[in-house]
Amino acid sequence: MANLAEPFRIRLDVRISDIDPQLHVTSAAYQQYADHARFECVQAAGISVDELLRDGFGPVNLEAVIKFHRELRVGDCVDVTCEWVWGEGKTYRVENTLTRADGVVVATISYVCGLLDLKQRKLIPNPAAEWASRATDPTVIGLECVPARA
């Protein structure tokens, strides 16, 4: 399935607590920025994470690949995009691009994700359908409409 809209985007300020001894942002902070963007994106789509968890489903990261391009330092602002890439099967990708306010891309993060059935401890077969059925605006997460549940 192709993505339909521009990727979701938020702006974050780099905090002093995000900095390592070399005075640039730690790799863990980059992942936290991406996780925060994904959470905000889900909320912007109208999905209640509380309801998702209550119903026995939990989003999981199965793989994360970070590519660093430039430094990000205290005082910088960073725009973080969140683009969901859907296909067939139990997994999907979430792609993040982190860009300084001056337009320089500082990092990209690519996640392979799934939606875990918390009782069975297995990935559900059609995560796109589950996410879309909970969204008031599925286009925010790259879905056109509510697919039929398997």
Rank of each mutant, 00 (worst) to 15 (best):
M1A: 13
M1G: 15
A2V: 13
N3H: 14
E6W: 10
F8L: 07
R9E: 15
I10D: 01
I10P: 01
I10K: 02
L12Y: 07
L12S: 06
D13R: 08
D13F: 04
R15N: 14
I16N: 12
I16A: 15
D20W: 14
D20Q: 14
P21C: 07
Q22C: 13
L23G: 08
T26L: 11
T26F: 08
S27W: 13
A29D: 07
Y30A: 02
Y30D: 00
Q32A: 15
A34K: 00
D35H: 09
H36L: 13
H36D: 10
H36Q: 15
R38V: 05
F39N: 05
F39I: 10
F39R: 05
C41K: 06
C41E: 06
V42L: 14
Q43M: 12
A44H: 06
A44R: 07
G46C: 09
G46D: 11
I47Y: 03
S48R: 15
D50T: 14
E51F: 09
E51H: 12
E51C: 13
L53W: 13
R54Q: 12
D55V: 01
F57L: 14
P59Q: 06
P59M: 05
P59G: 10
P59K: 09
P59R: 08
N61I: 15
E63P: 00
A64H: 05
V65G: 07
I66R: 08
I66H: 04
I66G: 00
H69Y: 11
R70Y: 05
E71Y: 13
G75E: 06
C77N: 01
C77E: 00
V78D: 00
V78P: 09
V80Q: 04
C82I: 15
C82L: 11
E83R: 12
E83K: 12
E83V: 10
E83F: 00
W84T: 11
W84A: 08
V85E: 09
V85Q: 14
V85F: 02
W86E: 12
G87Y: 09
G89P: 02
G89K: 07
T91C: 08
T91R: 13
Y92A: 03
E95N: 09
N96S: 13
T97I: 11
T97K: 09
L98I: 01
T99P: 11
T99A: 02
R100G: 02
A101C: 07
A101Q: 09
A101G: 08
A101F: 02
A101V: 03
D102G: 06
G103Q: 07
G103F: 06
V105I: 06
V105P: 08
T108V: 03
T108A: 03
I109M: 08
C113N: 10
D117M: 06
L118A: 05
K119Y: 07
Q120L: 14
Q120M: 14
K122M: 13
K122P: 12
K122C: 10
P125H: 04
N126F: 14
P127Y: 12
A128Y: 14
A128R: 15
A129L: 12
W131C: 00
W131R: 09
S133M: 02
R134D: 10
A135S: 01
D137Y: 00
D137C: 03
D137A: 09
P138D: 01
I141A: 09
G142C: 01
L143D: 00
L143R: 08
L143C: 07
E144A: 12
E144C: 02
C145R: 12
V146P: 01
P147A: 03
P147K: 02
P147R: 04
A148C: 05
R149I: 06
R149S: 12
R149D: 03
A150P: 03
A150C: 05
